[in-house]
Design a protein around this nucleic acid. Structure first.
Lengths: 375, 375
DNA sequence: GATTCTAATCAGGACCCTTGCCTGGAAAGG
DNA sequence: CCTTTCCAGGCAAGGGTCCTGATTAGAATC
């Protein structure tokens, strides 16, 4: 039964939710201001505040109105009781860890970063994550919950980073939830960085809710957003395109990731793409660079075709260090134009997109947690 | 603002919805039975019935309880006032048109079929559709709404069948909504038959909400279901896999649909696959048939890889006249096993799946229309 | 000190749901 | 034939929630 039982509790909860969300937007408000903000009557708003104070979700801040405002009776400012609780937004990449603590008002309550060097082992990354959590906990207390972006495929059920055979594995073997457990009271949500980037672009472009996000960097990734939802798949591995069949340099059917091996653009002793070498080889005006760009275009075209065929996006956002390079992007556009339903490619717009995505989700979850609190 | 304004009207609407849905499940009920069924109190249920009768949504059927039931006071049986209104579920395929009228109770109020011959033109199909609508309207009155399955790609915005370049186009140029307009009062919903088949499989397998459906017949189609939702894409063309890059008979990168041309398995003068010839060529024990099966397996493997990479389904359901052939399915399984994240293939289980899908959707929409009626 | 202005509260009324009790009417049993 | 049993339906009271409109409380201004 999807429809709730009719009851007055239902409508009361709706009222309380309006009050709580208004306090999230404005930090401190009097009963009268709350009534105006929510559109409720003054007595109703006042009664809801009384309930919420009794439940411990809202507190009289002690501050009084007056002082320059009007000359009327002093009003009491109310605030959320758990206003100092925070959610953590964390980005884990091979280069290091970035974390921010956000409060229910959406403000940053703390920030910590830890460099891990370009070729860090998974142990080093775990250590960096632990150090960041330690500092953040010291600065702004433990977290209610954490939302994590990782530069590797993430198992949806466990939140662990997983290694797909022969695909780039950048951060390495890691269970963020386990590392963060001492510092986080509630749930730790983990997802792939490309999915978070796609969610950030989704939030940044209202009215555009069906697109794909193609990430071209050390690793290859793709996120599909359809009707405002990110496709995750059974194991959370949707968009792991390394093994997609495409056209290799010789025209033969080749898995996408192997094309970079054939072109000599994978980092030696690693599964990752060597971005620096790729940029050096593919940019410039010579015929050799043009040849590399054409080969990359052909290879990526297979991925674009698959995305277009299966997901029918309105456009494909291309992000990542070499995908956004102007010369390469042009080569990709040329290749895409040779397909009947060639997609529109556009560069990513949100800076630090995956971090923006986790941060927004952390805030949403923190706020929803307050609304869902028993009362 | 996603949360509704708190009001008592909200809770009253919830009550009325419970009463209406109970009457959809049980056809006729007394006030007392409704109270038990909905979990509401007798006065509340009775009051809701009074409101709904006044609004014309519910009617006293005239029937009285008594007669064998208990020995108590006679009760009045109430029924939905619009119980004779119907929604149409229609399947349009090159072979012909099948349509059913369903009422709010989920029962079939009428059925009509019209054969159109194997190689019907789009005009002939339109004529068949009109004839079916005519007969259905004569038998059970005009429809509140219609839900249509078509064996071609469907433009999401307009509901028209669209012709993608060089892809099979089976039914032909047709706007079902226009043909049905004289017979249908409300909305005409059109979608691809493979999407409907996937929705039917989704309903048939509770607990399994992330899979793909691959249709292998005269046309090629694919539906992706993730977290219980069918991926439709910007134009409704998600899953149109004809141009997917795959491995051709010679090992070169080839669009999927062209493989059938290279193998000589497309119907002459048409863009469709010749299923009979394909089955004749690919089944049997000789080495030639095994070779064809291997080529088909390699070609389809590209599609399976793309689906697995992009959508990460739990399993891939294979349907369609030649996809379900045991020998071919075995060849597909062999090919899939050569992929690192090789998907589990299983044959379709729902008979007449796309019709089951439209029928269920028509019923849902008809019922939702009753609930949403002004009162 | 009177006036003005605003926050908070009070009073009254309209709904909506629930529990509990009562009424009407028909079958079953003596 | 009369009484008992049983059940649909209705009535009344009580608890909640919301709203409008009026009133009180307290501080700044004149």
């Amino acid at each position: 039964m999807t429809v709730p039982k009719p009851s007055l509790e239902l409508v009361r909860n709706v009222t309380d939710e309006h009050i709580l969300r208004a306090l999230m937007r404005h930090r401190r408000m009097t009963r009268a201001e709350l009534a105006v903000e929510t559109g409720l009557s003054k007595p109703t708003a006042g009664e809801s505040v009384r309930r919420l104070v009794a439940a411990g979700l809202v507190a009289d801040s002690g501050e009084r109105t007056a002082g320059g405002r009007g000359r009327g009776r002093v009003g009491s400012y109310y605030t959320l009781a758990g206003g100092d609780r925070t959610a953590w937004a964390i980005s884990i990449a091979p280069g290091g860890v970035v974390a921010e603590a956000v409060d229910v008002y959406g403000e940053t309550a703390g920030r910590a970063e830890e460099d891990a060097g370009r070729t860090a082992s998974s142990d080093q990354v775990a250590t960096a994550l632990r150090a960041v959590a330690e500092r953040l906990a010291a600065a702004s207390g433990p977290a209610e919950l954490a939302v994590v972006s990782a530069a590797d495929p993430v198992d949806r059920a466990t939140g662990r980073l997983v290694h797909l055979p022969d695909a780039p594995f950048l951060v390495g073997d890691l269970d963020p939830a386990e590392v963060l457990a001492p510092y986080v009271a509630g749930e730790v949500t983990v997802d792939n960085d490309v999915n978070w980037a796609a969610r950030a672009e989704l939030a940044a472009r209202p009215g555009s809710d069906t697109f794909a996000y193609l990430y071209l960097g050390e690793g290859l990734g793709c996120a599909i957003v359809s009707d405002g939802r990110v496709l995750r798949g059974r194991h959370g591995l949707a968009g792991e395109i390394a093994h997609l069949t495409t056209a290799g340099p010789g025209g033969g059917a080749t898995p996408l990731i192997e094309v970079f091996g054939l072109l000599g653009l994978r980092r030696p002793g690693s599964t990752a793409i060597d971005v620096d070498r790729l940029l050096a080889a593919a940019t410039g005006t010579g015929p050799r660079a043009a040849g590399v760009r054409a080969a990359l275009g052909e290879a990526v075209r297979g991925a674009l075709t698959a995305i277009t065929s299966l997901a029918d996006p309105d456009h494909i956002i291309v992000g990542g260090p070499w995908g956004q390079d102007p010369a390469i992007l042009t080569a990709l556009r040329d290749a895409a134009a040779r397909h009947p339903r060639g997609p529109v490619l556009c560069p990513a717009t949100v800076p630090a997109p995956s971090f923006a995505g986790v941060r927004a989700d952390a805030l949403t979850r923190l706020r929803d947690g307050v609304i869902a609190a028993p009362r």
